[in-house]
Computed example of a mutant assay.
Amino acid sequence: MNSAGNFNRKSSSRGVYCLFAFLVVFGFLLPLKVPAQDSRDGSSFTASLLNIEAPVNETFRYQATLTNNSDQARIYQLSAEMPEGWRVAFKARGSQITSLNVEPGRTESLTIEIRPAYGAAPSTYPVPVQARAANETLSLDLEAVIEGSHEMELTTPTGRLSGEITEGEKAEILLQVKNTGSLALNDITFSSQTPPNWQATFSPAEIQQLDPGETMDVIAMLSVPDKTLAGDYVSKFTAKNAPSTSTATFRMTVKTSMLSGWVGILVILLAIGFVFYLIRKFGRR
């Protein structure tokens, strides 16, 4: 009785082990057959580079090939799943396209151009691209890696870079520095190039940190010395930190003061009077 029971238990154990082994083998083999359904005839969609790293203001260009290994021509519709604000363009044979006709057994080259959204944060962005024909869909998984950038712009709130001043006076010029990059700007300092004997000071003299997209006003106090001749003069104001710099060229028109004008007129009148006096005095002889 015990032998029969042991035999039955061993048989049951073998059956469980066989069933388990079958499920394991079947479970591994089944997924291996799924990818073959993407292209039954061996057609392919590939790229020489799948991952490109560049600044946010540049265009990412991927060189791809589309191969039709079927026995008939196929028209592939091209599309891409883009992050919000991004743009994509497909180019082949010198033209921008949305679909591509590939003859049987032929391979066509195309360029995929991806333009990131303005101000996209530094990160890795997946860009799935697909080529769809009537009977199949070929996929290509691209990646665009946005580099961080240090960029700034120095200008005025209105964009106007000119003004007027009277000799011997001071003028406040409102400047504006903006972080146009994707990384924070630290330790921004200011400097100037002015005509001889002119002076410029800045308030604040330094910006400790300016985050991406932020703007800060800076006052440049420009001093013009006395007896400066009337005319147009150019001054250059520069904002700078270790990785970036920006310069604004400002044209200042100098006018003479009213007092200087009256003094000049008086000098001219005195000169004319003195000449007239000499003529009358020596003209009698």
Rank of each mutant, 00 (worst) to 15 (best):
Q199V: 08
Q199D: 11
Q199N: 11
A200Q: 06
A200T: 13
A200K: 03
A200W: 02
A200P: 13
T201Q: 14
T201C: 13
T201Y: 06
T201K: 12
S203W: 10
S203C: 10
S203F: 11
P204G: 10
P204Y: 06
A205C: 10
A205E: 15
A205Y: 07
A205F: 08
E206L: 12
I207K: 05
I207W: 02
I207E: 03
I207A: 03
Q208P: 07
Q209V: 14
Q209H: 10
Q209P: 07
Q209S: 15
Q209N: 14
L210E: 05
L210I: 06
D211W: 07
D211V: 12
D211F: 10
D211E: 15
D211T: 13
P212C: 08
P212H: 03
P212D: 09
G213E: 12
G213L: 11
G213N: 12
E214Q: 12
E214G: 01
E214N: 11
T215Y: 05
M216Y: 06
M216S: 12
M216Q: 14
D217M: 11
D217E: 14
D217F: 04
V218K: 00
V218D: 05
I219M: 11
I219V: 15
A220H: 03
M221E: 14
M221L: 15
M221C: 09
M221F: 02
L222V: 09
L222M: 10
S223C: 05
S223G: 06
S223V: 08
S223W: 00
S223T: 13
V224T: 04
V224I: 06
V224G: 02
V224E: 01
P225T: 08
P225H: 09
P225R: 10
P225E: 11
P225N: 11
D226L: 09
K227P: 00
K227V: 02
T228A: 01
T228H: 00
T228P: 01
L229V: 12
L229H: 10
L229E: 14
L229F: 08
A230E: 13
A230L: 06
G231D: 09
G231L: 12
D232F: 02
D232T: 13
D232E: 13
D232R: 10
Y233A: 05
Y233C: 00
V234G: 01
V234T: 13
S235D: 06
S235Q: 07
K236H: 04
K236D: 08
K236I: 04
F237H: 04
F237D: 00
F237S: 02
T238F: 00
T238D: 03
T238P: 00
A239Y: 01
A239K: 01
A239D: 07
A239C: 11
K240N: 13
K240G: 07
K240D: 12
N241F: 02
N241H: 01
N241W: 01
A242F: 12
S244M: 04
